[in-house]
């Protein structure tokens, strides 16, 4: 089983990542992808600044992917998280889970995202469209609750 994990400044191509994950394989029956994008918050947000802990970010996402693979019997998983300045409409994160059947792929992608949000060392700061000082985004109780359901 392979888990592909990357933490990078540049954008990613969802279709190319799915193709890379499936290349040369005939045993995969289900591929679920999740991508998280930057919202403009009704025009109030100019961009997000994504800070991360280099090294630990990759290690933590890899650990989460390995756990998902073991728990849901995934055949492959990919997780890519961007950092730096990201404008509304741009990609932030991509998760791909592949399995013989759909439920494991859905659950695997969901699990990876729930744990990534609460355990992977990334922090978002807002840049406001009106030029005023932006705030650090607060962690949501709903994200902790989502993780605890597993």
């Amino acid at each position: 089983m392979t888990a592909t994990v990357r933490v990078q400044r540049e954008d990613f191509d969802l279709a190319a990542e799915v193709a890379a994950l499936c290349r040369g394989r005939t045993d995969i029956g289900a591929v679920v992808t999740f991508s998280g994008l930057c919202r403009d918050e009704a025009g109030a947000l100019a961009a997000l600044e994504l800070e991360h802990y280099p090294g630990m970010a990759e290690t933590e996402i890899s650990r989460i992917c390995r756990e998902a693979v073991a728990r849901f019997g995934l055949q492959a998983a990919t997780a890519i998280h961007r950092f730096g300045r990201i404008a509304p409409g741009e990609n932030i994160v991509l998760v791909i889970a592949a399995a013989p059947h759909r439920q494991a792929a859905f659950d695997g992608a969901n699990f990876i995202m729930d744990f990534l949000k609460t355990s992977a060392p990334f922090w978002k700061k807002e840049h406001r469209a009106d030029g005023s000082a932006g705030e650090w985004v607060s962690a949501k109780d709903a994200d902790d609750a989502a993780r605890q359901q597993w």
Binding site: L50, Y53, I92, L116, K117, P121, F122, W123, W136, A139
Partner: peptide, 10 residues
């Protein structure tokens, strides 16, 4: 040793 607020990635 690192110190940081609750994480807000994803």
């Amino acid at each position: 040793i690192a110190f940081f607020p609750p994480m807000t990635g994803g």
